[in-house]
Simulated scan of single mutants.
Amino acid sequence: MIRSSVSNCPVPIDQQPLNEYEELKASWLFRDCTLNLQEYITTIAWIWGLSWLVAGPVAAASFPPNKYLAHFILCGAAGASVGVVLGLTRLYLGWHYVRDRLYSTTVFYEESGWYDGQTWMKPPEILTRDRLIVTYDIKPILQRLQLTFASLAGLLVIGTIVWHLF
């Protein structure tokens, strides 16, 4: 639902931070961050599984599964993690951009092109509303994404240790 944030706001509707947030929250990829934990992990697992379509053949070419099964699995899992990291990076950057736009006291916008940018100072009530959205809606999403990155890094360390054991 896109709506005008303020009736006297000179910022075009599609460039208003609240509307950017609503658009991001409704988009198919970014809304997955707002799901409950089980659905979120399921989505990440699907991305990882689909990434095996590329990582699996590459790992098999390097480590034939019939000879080096453990190395094949570890190499394929690490390669499939690249797809997850790329997806998570896109999610993090999108949410971080909207967080910065909502949290800022000023809004930079373009009226008709890159050459005529303007800045609008948010009134206190709009700034307060936007910062509450950041605190209660966006900050938990960014923390979830950071925790996911940390978990992937931990799994990579575990995989490296297991690799050296074989």
Results as ranks from 00 to 15, higher is better:
S7G: 03
Y92A: 15
M1A: 01
Y103F: 06
T105W: 04
K25H: 04
A80L: 05
Y115D: 13
S7N: 07
D100I: 15
I47T: 11
F149Q: 15
S51K: 04
R129T: 00
Q118R: 10
Q16F: 07
W28Q: 12
P140I: 03
L50A: 05
I44M: 06
I158M: 13
K25D: 04
I13Q: 14
A153C: 04
V107D: 01
F72V: 09
R90S: 14
N8E: 12
Y115K: 06
C33L: 00
L156F: 15
T34F: 14
A77H: 13
S151E: 08
E110V: 08
R131F: 02
S27C: 02
W46C: 15
V54Y: 09
W46S: 15
D137A: 13
V54E: 09
A45P: 05
S27D: 14
T42N: 15
L147N: 06
I73K: 14
P64H: 14
S151Y: 03
G154Y: 07
P64R: 09
G94R: 01
S104D: 04
I41W: 02
V84R: 10
V157R: 02
P10T: 00
E125V: 14
Y40D: 06
G159V: 05
Y115E: 12
W120Q: 00
L102F: 06
E125G: 05
G117K: 08
A26M: 03
K122R: 05
E111Q: 12
T34D: 10
L18W: 07
T119K: 02
F63W: 13
F72I: 01
P123F: 01
L127D: 00
E22R: 13
T34V: 11
N19D: 07
D116H: 10
F108D: 11
N66T: 15
G49A: 03
K67D: 14
L127T: 02
V84A: 07
I41M: 12
Y40A: 02
L53H: 08
D130R: 01
S27W: 05
W95C: 04
I2T: 11
R129S: 03
L93D: 12
S62Q: 09
D137M: 07
R99I: 01
S7E: 14
V85M: 13
A153I: 12
L155G: 05
G94E: 03
N66R: 12
T119S: 00
V157G: 05
T135W: 05
T42D: 13
M121Q: 15
Q143A: 05
P10N: 01
N66A: 10
P12Y: 15
T89K: 10
W46L: 14
W28S: 15
L127K: 02
L155H: 11
Q38P: 01
Q143R: 15
L35R: 13
V98K: 03
L18A: 09
A59I: 03
A80K: 04
